[in-house]
C-alpha cells in the first residue's frame, strides 16, 4: 500500500511542540498529569532511532499519539510529510506499530490476524497471501499459522505482532519496548531482523529502557524523562560526552576494610569482597590506581567494563535533572 522507500529528503517524523496532558481521574480540570511537555523533534527517513527513558517518561504516549491511540493535547506531528491532523488516514498508512502490551485476538489464528490487518490497510486477502506466508516464514511462525494466538508463547506473540505491523510494508516501524520480557536469544534474533529491515529502507523508531538495545541498534537516540527530551544526538556523540569511565576489577582474594582505607584517595569503591569499581575521569589512567593496589597486596584477576556505556550517560543525565 505504501510507496517506495525513497523519500526525497522528507523526514520520516517531524514533531513540533507536542504536548499531552492526561485528565485527572477525578475529572477536575487543570489538575491532569502532563505526560509530554512541548516536545519537538525531527527524524530523517531511513533512521534507526530510539527513545530512551525510564518507565513513565512519556515514551509510550509519544508513540501512541503518532499511531492514533492517544489524543494529543496540542502541537503538530507529520509522518513522511503528512500531518496526523489534516490527513490522519494517510499518515497512519505509513506506520506499522508493535505495541508494548500483547493486543492479539485470542481466538484468531496467526494467519487470520495478519491477513485481516492487511485488509484494514486496503489490501485484499488474495493479494496479501504470498506476503503473509513469507512474513510468517521469515519470523519462524509458518508452522503456527493455524494456531490461535492464545496458544502461542510470549516470544511467538511478540514476533506475530511484528509480522502484523509489517504486513502492509510500512515506511515507519514504531516499536514500543519491543524486547520487553523476551529471552536473550530471541532478543538478539530480533535485533538482527530489525537491523536488516532498516538496511532495506524502513525507518525504525523504538522506545526502550534497555540501554544496551539502543546502543546496539540505533544511530540516533533521544533521552526522555518526565515528558521532556533532555538529550538528543548520535549514540557516538552521547558516549563521547561521558565525563568518566567505569571499570570493574575482580580481585584474587577478599579485600578488607583496612585495605580499602589505604586506597581512600583513589577513585576506587568496593562493590563486594571480590569486586572493586574504578571510576576514571577524562585524562586519568588506570596506572596510578593499579600501582597502589599492587603495593598494598591486592591482586587483580580480571578487568571488566560495567556493561552499557550509554547507561552511564543516561544515569548521569537523569541524576542531573
Amino acid at each position: 500500500m505504501t510507496d517506495s522507500h525513497v523519500d526525497n529528503g522528507v523526514p520520516a517524523l517531524k514533531i513540533e511542540h507536542l504536548r499531552k496532558v492526561y485528565a485527572s481521574r477525578t475529572g477536575a480540570t487543570g489538575a491532569g498529569h502532563e505526560a509530554l511537555k512541548d516536545v519537538s523533534l525531527t527524524i530523517p527517513s531511513g533512521e534507526f532511532f530510539a527513545f530512551l527513558g525510564p518507565n513513565g517518561a512519556g515514551k509510550s504516549t509519544l508513540i501512541g499519539i503518532l499511531s492514533g491511540l492517544v489524543v494529543k493535547s496540542s502541537g503538530t506531528a507529520e509522518v513522511c510529510g503528512v500531518s496526523i491532523d489534516a490527513n490522519p488516514e494517510k499518515a497512519k498508512s505509513f506506520i506499522g506499530l508493535v505495541p508494548q502490551e500483547f493486543n492479539l485476538n485470542w481466538f484468531e489464528t496467526s494467519l487470520e490476524i495478519i491477513v485481516n490487518q492487511a485488509g484494514y490497510y486496503g489490501i485484499a486477502r488474495k493479494d496479501i497471501m504470498p506476503r503473509a506466508e513469507q512474513l510468517l516464514k521469515d519470523l519462524g511462525l509458518w508452522d503456527k499459522r493455524h494456531e490461535q494466538s492464545r496458544t502461542l508463547s510470549g516470544g511467538m506473540k511478540r514476533r506475530l505482532m511484528i509480522a502484523r505491523a509489517l504486513i502492509h510494508e510500512p515506511k515507519v516501524l514504531l516499536l514500543d519496548e519491543p524486547t520487553a520480557g523476551v529471552d536473550v536469544e530471541l532478543r538478539r534474533e530480533m535485533w538482527e531482523y530489525l537491523r536488516t529491515l532498516n538496511e532495506q529502507g524502513t525507518t525504525i523508531i523504538l522506545t526502550t529502557h534497555y540501554l544496551e538495545e539502543a546502543e546496539q541498534l540505533c544511530r540516533q537516540v533521544a533521552i526522555i524523562n518526565h515528558g521532556e527530551i533532555i538529550k538528543q544526538g548520535t549514540v557516538k556523540s552521547l558516549l563521547t560526552s561521558l565525563n568518566f569511565v567505569t571499570l570493574l576489577l575482580d580481585v584474587v582474594a577478599p579485600v578488607s576494610t583496612a585495605e580499602m582505607t589505604l586506597v581512600r584517595d583513589y577513585p576506587i569503591t568496593k562493590i563486594d569482597d571480590m569486586t572493586l569499581e574504578l571510576k576514571l575521569a577524562p585524562g586519568e589512567t588506570v596506572n596510578d590506581s593499579f600501582r597502589k593496589l599492587t603495593a598494598i597486596g591486592v591482586q587483580i584477576a580480571n578487568i571488566r567494563n560495567t556493561g552499557s556505556r550509554l547507561e552511564e550517560v543516561f544515569i548521569n543525565l537523569i541524576e542531573k535533572k
Binding site: 485481516n116 486496503g122 512474513l135 510494508e169 530480533m190
Partner: peptide, 24 residues
C-alpha cells in the same frame, strides 16, 4: 529470522471496500 524482499502490494478494489469486507 530472515527477511525476504518486499512484495509490491496492490489491490484492485478501493481500500475502504476491502477494509469493510474484511470486517464483515
Amino acid at each position: 529470522m530472515s527477511i525476504s524482499t518486499a512484495s509490491n502490494l496492490t489491490s484492485k478494489r478501493s481500500p475502504i471496500v476491502v477494509g469493510f469486507l474484511t470486517m464483515l
